[in-house]
C-alpha cells in the first residue's frame, strides 16, 4: 500500500454522499470488530485562500469537520476526516480505512471505492455539462454614432 493509494481512498470516502456510502457498506458482509481509539467528534478547521487566487495565504473562514479513529483486532488503525457534522459517516470512513489496509483491499476497492468514484465523476461531469449549456458568445456591435 502506497501513501497515494491511501490518500486516494480516504479522499473518495470523505467526499462520498453519506447515503450512498451507507448503502454500499450495508450490502457488504459484516464489519469486523473494532476498538474506538478516538470517538467520532465534531470540530472546525480554518479554510485558507490565496490573495489573487495564486498569491500569499489568508484565512477565509472555518468549516465544520468530523473525525474518528478506530483499530481492528488485527492491529490496523483507520482514520477518518470528513467535512460537516456527521459522526456516522466518519466512523464508517475510519473503519473502511482500516479494512482497506487488510487483505480485503482489492475486494473493497472493487465494491466500494471504485463505484463511489465513478458516481462522483458522473455527478461532476453532469454539472459541467449543465454549465456548458449556458456558455455564450458575446459580440460587440458597431455603434452608429460616427
Amino acid at each position: 500500500m502506497s501513501i497515494a493509494d491511501r490518500q486516494n481512498w480516504l479522499s473518495i470516502l470523505a467526499k462520498a454522499p453519506t447515503q450512498e456510502l451507507q448503502d454500499r457498506v450495508a450490502s457488504m458482509d459484516s464489519l469486523p470488530p473494532y476498538k474506538v481509539l478516538r470517538a467520532a467528534e465534531i470540530g472546525a478547521v480554518m479554510v485558507q485562500g490565496r490573495m489573487g487566487g495564486t498569491g500569499d495565504v489568508f484565512n477565509l473562514g472555518e468549516m465544520t469537520v468530523s473525525r474518528c479513529s478506530v483499530e481492528l483486532q488485527t492491529g490496523e488503525i483507520g482514520h477518518g476526516y470528513v467535512q460537516g457534522r456527521n459522526r456516522d459517516k466518519v466512523r464508517l470512513v475510519a473503519i473502511l480505512d482500516a479494512l482497506l489496509q487488510t487483505h480485503r483491499r482489492d475486494h473493497l476497492m472493487k465494491t466500494i471505492i471504485s463505484p463511489l468514484q465513478a458516481q462522483m465523476a458522473k455527478a461532476k461531469s453532469q454539472r459541467a455539462a449543465k454549465a456548458a449549456t449556458t456558455k455564450v458568445d458575446f459580440f460587440t456591435l458597431a455603434r452608429g454614432e460616427d
Binding site: 465534531i42 470540530g43 472546525a44 478547521v45 479554510v47 485562500g49 490565496r50 495564486t54 461532476k124 459580440f139
Partner: peptide
C-alpha cells in the same frame, strides 16, 4: 467548536465552475 487545524489553501484555479464570466475579454 474545537479547532482541528487548518486546510491547505484552496486552489481556485482548479474550481469546478458553474459560472465564469469576464467583463474584460469577450
Amino acid at each position: 467548536l474545537a479547532r482541528f487545524g487548518k486546510t491547505r489553501p484552496i486552489e481556485t484555479t482548479n474550481m469546478a465552475c458553474i459560472r465564469r464570466i469576464s467583463a474584460t475579454f469577450k
